[in-house]
Simulated scan of single mutants.
Amino acid sequence: MSLVISHLARRFGATPVLRGIDLEVRQGELVALLGPSGSGKTTLLRIIAGLDWPDAGGLSFDGADWLAKSAAERRIGFVFQHYALFPHMSVRDNIAFGLTVLPRAQRPGKAQIAATVDGLLRFLQIDGLADRYPAELSGGQRQRVALGRAMATGPRVLLLDEPFGALDAQVRRDLRRWLRGVHDSAGTTTIFVTHDQEEAFELADRVVVMNGGVIEQIGRPDEIYDHPATPFVARFLGLTVELPVTMRAGRAQAAGLDLTALPRRALPDGPATLFLRPADIEVLPDTAAPFRVTEAASTGALLRIVAESGTGCRIEAELPRRDARGLSVGQPVGLRIVAGQIFPGGGASAAAPAEPSRTLKEALS
């Protein structure tokens, strides 16, 4: 049983929010919709849930047209960022709510509802909270209750909209690991929305990167991290250093840089742009090199430096502080690029960033 989205489009007034989305989510898969605010993630989730309708395109589950079905008929479980628990109901009653409002013909008996709720309380490890009210719970506990309520009706698809966005960092990390275990045990098809790259990569089987109402890339987390398909994905995933290079017979070349570690690429000869992370640059003392360290700042574990050449090329790099002994401002250094992604065509020059840059000390303060 697969959820199939085809050519889905949605406009709000004159603004296109979704522009031809094609996606298939397989049974039992956990998929993350990752992207910045305004990329269309939540709108897509709401259409799957039956809370919004597209202007064009198709949506089916197990061959059935879901656009012809109401939200209730689709049997969707939805978990909101801010829990949406009923404050006047106990944890037990919140989880049971979806079962108690089913049509009479589908509604289980009271004993069966109680047994289902008890099972979920144990499964979600909140059985000691059954008689408490939402105001008496922590944020992490409320999110577990919200998940239990969504799971109680046996949904075909579980949808989570920024499920950990309202929680602090440590609780988010703990709940991510817990949710992955819950998903694997229950085997539910799950789609969740996030703008947090770490969250998407830790939880998901596949990641769908969205931007401006289109899908930029779909793939396993490691595939996307190592091989971003577009400049947008590269920038969004932290490849913030952009260097103009020239392609010759599949090899990238740039004055003063050692690019020999990069594999040969099937790109046409001519100008291209190399995207890389600051940690992908080895900084080596070299009296004959054209770069000099102009700034250096420590974060404790890392040393972040800026190196500039006589031609005005400015490159930021970071390396483990303990590996950087001997590097100091004014020292000539060679730069060896150990990884990166190359796209054809010229881009912003490293010597002329699109926005005025702060010094490293300002950025770290």
Rank of each mutant, 00 (worst) to 15 (best):
S298L: 05
Q141G: 04
M247Y: 12
G148Y: 07
A115N: 05
A32E: 10
G139D: 01
A114M: 07
R314K: 13
G35S: 02
T359L: 05
A279L: 00
L59Q: 03
G219A: 00
A339F: 02
L45F: 08
P344M: 02
A84S: 06
E73Y: 01
T287I: 13
Q197K: 10
R156P: 00
M210Y: 06
L319W: 05
E202M: 15
R75V: 10
K361D: 15
P268G: 06
R149T: 12
R321T: 14
K41Y: 01
A14D: 15
P263K: 01
A350C: 11
A296F: 06
Q341K: 13
Q141Y: 01
F97T: 03
V17G: 03
R104P: 09
L257E: 09
K69F: 07
S37N: 14
L3R: 01
P332N: 09
T240D: 11
P290M: 01
L34I: 04
G139P: 07
Y83F: 10
S365Q: 11
A339Q: 12
G340I: 06
E199C: 09
R277G: 12
S60P: 09
R206H: 12
R19V: 00
A255V: 04
W53N: 09
R325Q: 14
R107A: 08
T294L: 03
D269C: 11
R264M: 03
A9V: 15
S185N: 14
G312E: 02
F201D: 05
P228L: 04
D226Y: 08
V338W: 03
L303N: 08
R172A: 12
V214A: 14
S90V: 10
G148M: 10
P356Y: 00
G57S: 02
L99A: 11
R206W: 04
R206C: 13
I76W: 02
F164C: 10
P332T: 09
G109Y: 06
A249C: 00
V117F: 05
S365M: 09
V329S: 05
D280T: 06
A56Q: 06
R304K: 10
Q106G: 05
T190L: 10
E223M: 01
V91K: 04
L327H: 07
L129P: 03
P163L: 00
R358Y: 12
H82W: 01
V333R: 12
I47S: 14
D323N: 09
D196Y: 13
